[in-house]
Nucleic acid binder design. Structure first.
Lengths: 113, 113
DNA sequence: GTGTTATTCACCCTTATGGTTGAACAAGAA
DNA sequence: TTCTTGTTCAACCATAAGGGTGAATAACAC
């Protein structure tokens, strides 16, 4: 099912965004544009290795892409991917709104014989 | 700092939304309005206990509130809390857009002496 | 060739997460 | 009182997550 595929994707995105370091990386990329792994790591009090792992998580979630130019890996933010999250929240709110609307309609019927 | 408090909140929300079961619970609540723990658990092939824990995570993230009426606990969705996530994404995108704009401005200056 | 730079890979360690079961508690029903 | 219902608490277990170090790889600089 396509539905499941989408759910899986959403899980990866939320999990990726659920870590403060990874959110910082995303902000950094939004500010500076594509950066090398080393450049990103320089902003954190953490081993390069750990930062590399965080980047892989972001990459796995599709929030970031890697352009490997010779030995440098340029990491770039993929803003488009954020749309998935937007859509999920929007859907949730619309389900919520529809229920309230239906409830309101029901009440109006009852009090308006 | 207030900034840190906000970051912590965001982390909790993302982590809570990072689990498919918990997202299902949120959808369920949006559809049906306030529900009891048992009612929610009935929708999942999982022990009541596990569902109870999931609800506590959602509660901790502020995505849900609990109204304890005698021995029944009514769980209710708090749509307002989703705004935090919206804002974060909106900010990220605006940082991104500002950088592109500045870049564009720079290019225009260079090619227009 | 050797040296340096940029990254990842393979482990290791500690803590968090998601699930289970069984006991405990609280309150109405018989 | 005993029974049932609704819920949490306390362990426990397996696996994932986030951090570290050291070796491996890849490619340029000398």
């Amino acid at each position: 099912m396509v539905e499941q595929e989408s759910q899986h994707r959403l899980t990866d995105i939320f999990k990726a965004a659920g870590d403060p370091t990874r959110r910082s990386i995303l902000t950094l990329l939004a500010q500076h544009g594509p950066l090398r792994v080393t450049d990103i790591a320089a902003h954190f009090d953490m081993s390069l290795n750990s930062v590399s792992k965080h980047i892989k998580v972001l990459e796995g979630a599709g929030l970031v892409t890697r352009r490997t130019e010779w030995r440098e890996h340029m990491i770039e933010l993929r803003v488009e991917e954020l749309a998935h999250v937007d859509r999920w929240f929007r859907d949730l709110r619309s389900i919520w709104a529809l229920r309230l609307e239906a409830l309101d309609h029901l009440l109006t019927q009852e009090t308006d014989p």
